[in-house]
Simulated scan of single mutants.
Amino acid sequence: MAYSENHARHRLMLGVDLQDSSGPAREESLSSELVENLQRLVRRALKSQGIGSDAYSWQNRGDGGRFDFHDVSPVRVIRAVTEQVPSELRRHNRRVAQALRMALRFVVHEGYVVPHEADGDHNGRAVQELSGILDSPELRQALRKRGDWVLAVTKPIWQGVVLPLHGDLDPGAFEASSVHVKSRGELLVWVTPRSTSAARPDSAATSRPTSHDAPSGSAHGSAEPPRIGFYAPVTFEGTTSIGGVQHIGGQSDGQSDRTSDRPNP
């Protein structure tokens, strides 16, 4: 499908899903309360990183949903999940009955999305990939091994944000994994927290640049060979997008955002 500049939009996305939402311990009448609790928890985590509700839209998908961001650094979204969600989730689960406790799967992805005017949602390859990873049996199993939360980042986020150390994110906190997505086959993702039984990667697999000034769209390597190419360069009226980063006249307009310092307290 050929995308035009007016038809497709680039979005950073955070998908979240509630594990075992329809399990035998869950009463159907609790479904709406569970999703409300999930939204409230994630919104608080995002707010702690300076991401207000005006910076994203929420797409409800029943037992979870997707946050679509507008001009937000992926660093802040990843920090919200890895730094704020764990404590918020522990606090929540201590205070509620068993049937209202939550274990959450997260995926951070980016790419071009196509507006769907009928319901205000978006579609396209990037949305389908995010949904497929979020629902994959491999990510469900990863959550069971790790406790009450797990985050997977996709190849463009790994190569453009985590691996180059933007925002002092730690690539060593992630481990490479492949997941099976219907109609997409095997996709490579990087998962955190690491499994306690997983072997630490060797030095060659974790080699990375020492400068924080590299453009966020650059690929500096990965923990696995780059088997999957999500996006080819796309040019619209002199603007080139590589891996979801806009390059205008040789300067990336995502560079300053991706290399931003931690938000003010």
Rank of each mutant, 00 (worst) to 15 (best):
S4P: 00
S4M: 12
H7K: 10
H7Q: 10
H10G: 04
M13V: 08
L14M: 01
L18E: 08
D20H: 03
S21T: 15
G23F: 06
P24F: 11
S29C: 14
L30K: 01
S31L: 13
S31Q: 07
S31V: 15
S32L: 14
S32D: 15
E33F: 15
L34Q: 01
V35Y: 09
N37W: 07
N37M: 04
Q39G: 15
R40L: 06
L41P: 09
V42C: 06
R44V: 01
R44A: 14
R44C: 05
A45Q: 07
Q49T: 09
Q49E: 06
S53Q: 15
S53V: 05
A55S: 06
S57G: 11
S57T: 06
Q59K: 10
N60P: 00
G62F: 13
D63T: 05
G65K: 07
G65H: 02
V72G: 06
V75I: 14
R76C: 07
T82S: 09
V85Y: 01
E88D: 08
R91E: 10
H92W: 04
N93T: 11
R94H: 10
A97F: 03
Q98A: 15
A99N: 15
L104M: 12
L104K: 02
R105I: 02
V108E: 00
H109S: 04
H109R: 07
E110V: 11
G111W: 03
Y112G: 04
Y112K: 12
Y112C: 07
H116A: 14
E117M: 12
G120H: 12
V127F: 13
G132R: 04
G132M: 03
L134S: 07
S136Y: 05
E138T: 12
E138V: 10
L139T: 02
L139D: 01
Q141R: 12
D148V: 09
D148C: 08
L151D: 01
L151N: 02
K155D: 02
I157Y: 01
G160F: 08
V161K: 01
P164N: 01
P164W: 07
L169W: 01
D170Q: 04
P171C: 08
P171G: 09
P171Y: 04
V179G: 04
H180V: 11
V181R: 00
R184T: 00
G185L: 05
E186S: 12
L187K: 06
V189H: 11
V189P: 00
V191E: 00
S195I: 12
T196F: 15
P201W: 13
S203T: 15
A204M: 14
T206R: 02
S207W: 10
T210M: 15
S211W: 06
S211N: 07
H212Y: 09
A214Q: 11
P215S: 13
G217D: 01
S218D: 12
S222E: 02
A223V: 05
G229Y: 15
G229N: 13
G229V: 11
Y231F: 14
E237P: 14
I242F: 07
H247P: 07
I248C: 12
G249R: 09
G250L: 08
Q251I: 02
S252K: 07
D253Q: 14
G254H: 00
G254D: 02
Q255C: 13
S256C: 11
D257A: 10
R258P: 04
T259N: 13
D261A: 09
P263C: 13
P263H: 10
N264D: 14
